[in-house]
Design a protein around this nucleic acid. Structure first.
Length: 841
RNA sequence: GGGAGCUUAGCUCAGUUGGUUCAGAGCACCUGCCUUACAAGCAGGGGGUCACUGGUUCGAGUCCAGUAGUUCCCACCA
């Protein structure tokens, strides 16, 4: 029979076959019933995204968890979906259009959105197809999207509600401006990096005084043009003579006041600070204090604006170099030194961020975040690993208002409606409601929709995804519906630590505010997938393998195992292809165990002593390992749980159990023993299924006839008896003895075919007598004796308190002597070599 | 600048409340094997002063302090 089966496991067809079967039978579908729910909502990938290694890790973990719960009797529900990912998607569409020579601003909002939707239709959800390849057991009927009509309704509804409650305000604020995406980004989307630059010392002439100058130091000389003051410390004695004077902006000769402010650090640079309120957060604050005018020196795209009068339309970085030259030529550049300083970059586009003054929508965070802080500190929401609690706490205690608006078109348009002919606006969920409200608010009953225009901006992506665990069950749009009541709060969230604040914290806030309850109990934070040099995997570095190629080459099971083997929670995963190879090898090992078992001929007679012992032992080991595995799972130690199953299957089941069970050459195994082997094989497949869903499903069907519609994916883990501790201990000793005696055989070059006589001197000979059938099988003994005294003229091996003797007759003395001589010669040669090296000065 | 964490075998990591499951696992490495399940394999083996220094204790990878290195988070001085 085994001749039909290949020596190597080939996953490709088998994996496709089972995924289709599962999907057709809807085994992952979940509807509320009397069972306890176990729910995970997927961190929605970008709708236009394609699967990368981070997704692989993240979704493998979720699948392992949900599959195990499904097999433990829970009503397991894994909700899939995608995020519209405002900036990221819009950037992609803009780029695509640019390739066709189309500019966003030329076609207008409506046309642009048509293109965006077309793009979404074409590429959206590719990633969900890819997840199926991985084996993800999502309930696909529940696939959600953050811009589904009903979901959008929830997002807009929440905005309006928060506005009504007074949590949302509109204000002129210094925001982080991404000149490439041409939108404001939140503080969390700015990444600070030390960047080499220069510190320019520039002198400004004092107005009315021929040879008097004040020198400042700056890293951004191009902003000089937008200066509106020079600040000095009020108590700085070096500059008292400048109090009340004015300085002239170089190149422009525009007079600006010299002001006093104790923000100025007297130790830094020259102790004089140029103040550019429009382009620096601190300068803005100084400007506010001193009622300074602001000059907007930069356009939205990072070029110099008309307001300053010089270099207009040129890029900020070009101007930075040019102005340094021009200042030098004009005698204003005192010195220029290399300087390392921290610069903010956009997380999305990597463009250098410009602080920029603009009108934006904000959400007050202080009050809203309090219950969310409490939830984590109290342990109501568990962060795994716990080390993230400190980080979380620190952030929540110092939380700043959230800039909600983005200058984009792809997303949820802000439901604020402005009067066209006057100042004033209303916030309302629909245009109709807005008209209604406006009529009332402005006492103008004749107002129509035509008199209003909606805010051009859209909401930050996270202002929609923070409702994810609620509105995938329509909890906001259909409050108290049976689904939300059943599934909410969900159990686990598996995500990356990078979005702990972006997303996780905000989901907790929204959950507390709108459901009065946390959105999930456990947050498992995965590591970052890096290459073996610890570099983050990225497209630009080209160090990330294509997950689908990996699956094609090693099988989804192999890839899953490879990813999990080295990914403890919160620790980075150093990915190497060899890990996936290990996973594939494991699948192959299992496959071959199956081939072996299926190749046995079975005879209808009762089990012998050896077979009975082996089965009893394997059952005890299975029970022991099951307890260990459950313990690991309960602590989210998925990697350790896998290792436990791995060793159970490879070491205990294959290396020991199957070797114990193997019928002697040419003989058959008893039916009773065979049934036991099949049963234990099935049990190991159950334990492994969560990790390797495909091969286990395949073999589970191969081991036994199954009725139609029966799947391992929905089979239940067995309740096992307590492990037989005595038997486990006994066999541990027997194994130790076998290992020692095998080593002896190898060492003395006694071929296995040559049977040996074994003498065991022990206080407890009965112990060994009990397991003689196993000793005989593994050691090929012709006889076993239990002498009371040492056996003379025999080699002895000690195992714990027991002594084993093998008569010397079995040893080739000449060969032994020769071997030792060779060893001596080698060691002497080594010694000479080392001595020579040491003597070398 | 502030805060948090980490440092255990060549690599990646476990080591729960200090005391014979405490010095472990997987991979890598070495030796011998193509033994009719599997060379993507089998059998055996070597390897660590648990970063360093000091302290608490009868006893410390395990607790405390300091030092060095390293990672992350937050803030950001022009």
């Amino acid at each position: 029979m085994s001749s039909e089966l290949s020596k190597k496991y080939s996953p490709g067809e088998i994996e496709d076959k089972w995924y289709q079967a599962w999907e057709a039978a809807k085994v992952f579908k979940s509807v509320p019933d009397e069972r306890e729910p176990y729910t995970i909502v997927i961190p929605p990938p970008n709708v236009t995204g394609i699967l990368h290694m981070g997704h692989m890790l993240n979704n493998t973990l979720q699948d392992v968890i949900i599959r195990r719960k499904r097999m433990q009797g829970y009503n397991a529900c894994w909700v899939p979906g995608t995020d519209h990912a405002a900036i990221a998607t819009e950037a992609k569409v803009v780029r695509l259009l640019a390739e066709q020579g189309i500019k966003k601003s030329d076609i207008g909002r409506e046309k642009f959105l048509e293109h965006a939707y077309a793009w979404k239709e074409k590429y959206g959800g590719i990633i969900l197809q890819q997840l199926r390849k991985l084996g993800a057991s999502c309930d696909w009927d529940r696939t959600a999207f953050t811009m589904d009509p009903e979901y959008s309704e929830a997002v807009i509804g929440v905005f309006c509600d928060l506005y009504e409650k007074g949590h949302i305000y509109r204000g002129l604020r210094m925001v982080n401006w991404d000149p490439q995406a041409q939108t404001a980004v939140s503080d969390e989307e700015v990444i600070h990096r030390d960047t080499p630059g220069h510190l320019y010392h520039v002198r400004y002439q004092i107005e009315g005084l021929e040879n008097e100058y004040v020198t400042i130091a700056t890293t951004r000389p191009e902003t000089i043009l937008a200066d509106t003051a020079i600040a000095i410390h009020p108590e700085d004695e070096r500059y008292t003579h400048l109090h009340g004077k004015k300085a002239l902006v170089p190149l422009l000769n525009r007079p600006i006041p010299i002001i006093l402010d104790d923000y100025v650090d007297r130790e830094f640079g020259t102790g004089c600070l140029k103040v550019t309120p429009a382009h620096d957060t601190n300068d803005y604050e100084i400007g506010q204090r001193h009622d300074l005018p602001t000059i907007n020196g930069l356009n939205a795209d990072g070029t110099i604006s008309e307001e300053v009068g010089l270099y207009v339309g040129q890029d900020r970085f070009v101007v930075r170099k040019q102005i340094a030259k021009d200042l030098n030529a004009a005698g204003h550049l005192v010195k220029q030194e290399d300087y390392m300083h921290s610069v903010g970059y956009s997380e999305r586009t990597d463009a250098a961020i410009e602080p920029r003054l603009s009108l934006q929508w904000f959400l007050k965070m202080k009050e809203l975040s309090a219950p969310a802080l409490e939830a984590v500190v109290d342990g109501d929401v568990q962060l795994i690993p716990g080390k993230f609690i400190n980080t979380y706490k620190h952030w929540m205690e110092n939380v700043r208002d959230w800039c909600l608006s983005r200058q984009l078109w792809w997303g949820h348009q802000i439901p604020a409606y402005y009067l066209k002919d006057a100042d004033g606006y209303v916030v309302a969920p629909t245009p109709e409601a807005a008209v209604e409200k406006a009529r009332e608010k402005f006492k103008r009953p004749d107002l129509t929709l035509a008199d209003l225009h909606q805010d051009e901006d859209v909401l930050d992506t996270w202002a929609s995804s923070w409702l994810w665990p609620i509105n995938v069950f329509h909890g906001l749009t259909q409050p108290d519906n049976p689904e939300i009541s059943y599934y909410y709060p969900t159990q686990d969230l598996v995500t990356a630590p990078e979005i702990l604040f972006f997303w996780v914290a905000r989901m907790i806030i929204a959950g507390k505010e709108y459901m009065g309850e946390k959105p999930f109990s456990n947050v498992y934070l995965t590591g970052i997938v890096r290459d073996d040099q610890r570099r983050k995997m990225s497209k630009s570095l080209g160090n990330s393998p294509d997950p689908l190629d990996l699956i094609a080459q090693y099988g989804a099971d192999g890839v899953r195992v490879g990813m999990l083997l080295a990914s403890p929670a919160g620790n980075d995963l150093l990915f190497k292809e060899s890990l996936v190879e290990q996973g594939r090898n494991f699948a192959n090992k299992i496959w071959n165990a199956y081939r072996l078992v299926k190749g046995w001929s079975v005879a209808d007679h009762p089990a012998n002593e050896r077979e009975k012992l082996a089965i009893a032992w394997m059952e005890a080991r299975l029970a022991e390992a099951s307890i260990e595995i459950e313990d690991h799972f309960s602590k989210f130690r998925i990697s350790d749980a896998l290792m436990s199953v791995y060793r159970l299957k490879w070491d205990d089941f294959c290396s020991w159990f199957l070797e114990m069970m193997k019928p002697p050459y040419g003989e058959a195994i008893s039916q009773e023993a065979y049934d036991g082997v099949i049963r234990l094989f099935e049990e190991t497949m159950k334990l492994l299924h969560a990790f390797m869903p495909f091969i286990t499903e395949e073999l589970w069907h191969g081991l036994k006839e199954r009725s139609a519609g029966e799947f391992l994916a929905v089979a239940q883990l067995s309740d096992l008896d307590k492990p037989n501790e005595t038997l486990l201990e006994d066999i541990a000793l027997i194994k130790e003895a076998i290992t020692a005696l095998r080593a002896f055989r190898t060492d003395k070059q006694i071929p296995f075919k040559e049977a040996i006589t074994l003498h065991i001197k022990s206080d407890n000979p009965g112990l060994f007598q009990q397991y003689e059938t196993l000793l005989a099988k593994f050691l090929n003994t012709e006889a076993i004796h239990y002498p009371a005294e040492k056996v003379e003229g025999a080699s002895s091996i000690r195992v714990q308190a027991h002594e084993f003797f093998i008569p010397l007759g079995a040893i080739d003395v000449e060969a032994e002597r020769e071997k030792l001589q060779k060893e001596i010669a080698y060691q002497e040669g080594f010694l000479i070599k080392v001595n020579k090296k040491l003597e070398n000065e």
